[in-house]
Design a protein around this nucleic acid. Structure first.
Lengths: 230, 230
DNA sequence: CGAACAATTGATCCTCATCAAACCTTGTGG
DNA sequence: CCACAAGGTTTGATGAGGATCAATTGTTCG
């Protein structure tokens, strides 16, 4: 499969790139095809490439010495990941990137990207915008984890996912994640997620199935996520 | 008090700036003097300025709707804060900055900084390096909060602070923070911090006083922070 | 059909948050 | 210089919120 360089314009960071920029980047990129469950890179590897997900879905996660994981974010098509190497020479990836389904990504050498950005301030700014977005999101999630109860955090995770990648169906918004995934995203356990989803199902807010959550009443979920009471 | 522009070279982001850059920035900067407990800016204010702390100490914190706070980081002399406005026009500060003691900062209009960076890629890169550092730190702290027990998180906070700003005394490393500060930094309560510090004091790891912690045995604290056994 | 994986649910336990009360420390004003 | 106020700290008692463990029940797919 050969990818049209101009498709790269869909990438946030490349929205202001010229056609020549995109061609240049594409010329220096290689394609990597990764099976479900396999890894683009591991936490601690030298950050030699940055990636653009062309198809599929992946997750960025961090592991502690004891092996427990947290999910930092899910990566969808035309999102960039592993970009920090383009900024810091000799850096290592702070997280691992695992394919959630069969996925294809473009890999660009970090140094190449670095060189390209040196003469194109709009690219730097767009990358910085992405970064400030991550900082803000992580700050918010950190606060949530520190101050909010589990139920509300799960509600927030569902809403965030719904906004990012929810399939709008007739009966609501469909998400496909395991309880384990949702647990890693909300900083809890799969058991607690299961219990809370069951409770919500009893209340008619959602419909839960295997690797699937259908948000039937988004407004109700929002009110759990935002309500001041408790 | 007038500040020598060349002192700005101590700021991480300005390490590669030319003397003219620094003069230009200084010429566009105003000085703000803030009393202990007062704020440089509040979460939600338009991010019109970025700041460089010249003297004193401040903290960046986020508040949830119910008023609970988390401490995102402490700001020391010659550190930059509130920089996201230079990247995203029309952005609002995602956190509040409060002076921990009488502090002076240089305030630079976000747009000015934006314009300056447009023709100086090294500044953009240095700012990006700072940002990637924050992202990594927040990711790590997020994982810690999600997976580690309180005692270890407190140990990590002490070590982080010791590295950033600890006064090396004869008997150890001295830090001056209230239990409340430490609690906000580790995502727990002042009661728990107090209990754990008392326990550590019994073990001879630290010496605790009013708004003061002296790390007597850094190695012991490290082993709590890192130990695999639970 | 059986194996592998995902989800549910109950029972139990443990870590921390919360509340309350008392105790220190520091600075201020009479 | 003492008394007192204000803010920081300690410690005990209590309980809630979730984690953990175990057993069972779906679901999917080769």
């Amino acid at each position: 499969m050969k990818i049209d360089p101009l498709n790269l314009r869909q990438v946030n960071v490349f929205q202001n790139a010229t056609d020549e920029d995109l061609n240049l980047i594409a010329r220096h990129a290689i394609e990597r095809s990764i099976e479900e469950g396999e890894f683009f890179f591991f936490q601690g590897d030298p950050a030699a490439y940055l990636y653009v997900l062309v198809s599929g879905r992946a997750k960025l996660m961090q592991t502690n010495p004891a092996g427990q994981q947290v999910n930092l974010r899910t990566i969808n098509e035309w999102q960039m990941f592993g970009a920090l190497g383009a900024v810091r020479e000799g850096a290592t990836y702070p997280a691992s990137a695992q394919a959630l389904e069969h996925s294809v990504a473009l890999a660009v050498k970090s140094e190449t990207m670095h060189e390209i950005m040196e003469t194109r301030p709009y690219l730097s700014f767009d990358l910085m915008k992405l970064m400030t977005g991550y900082i803000q999101e992580m700050q918010e999630r950190y606060r949530e984890l520190a101050t909010e109860k589990v139920e509300r955090r799960i509600a927030r995770v569902l809403l965030r996912l719904a906004a990012q990648m929810g399939d709008k169906q007739d009966g609501g918004i469909e998400l496909s994640f395991t309880r384990q995934d949702l647990a890693e995203m909300s900083g809890t356990t799969l058991y607690t997620v299961s219990r809370i989803l069951s409770e919500w199902e009893r209340q008619g807010l959602v419909e839960a199935g295997r690797e699937r959550v259908l948000i039937r009443n988004p407004h109700g979920v929002v009110s759990i996520a935002e309500e001041l009471n408790q």
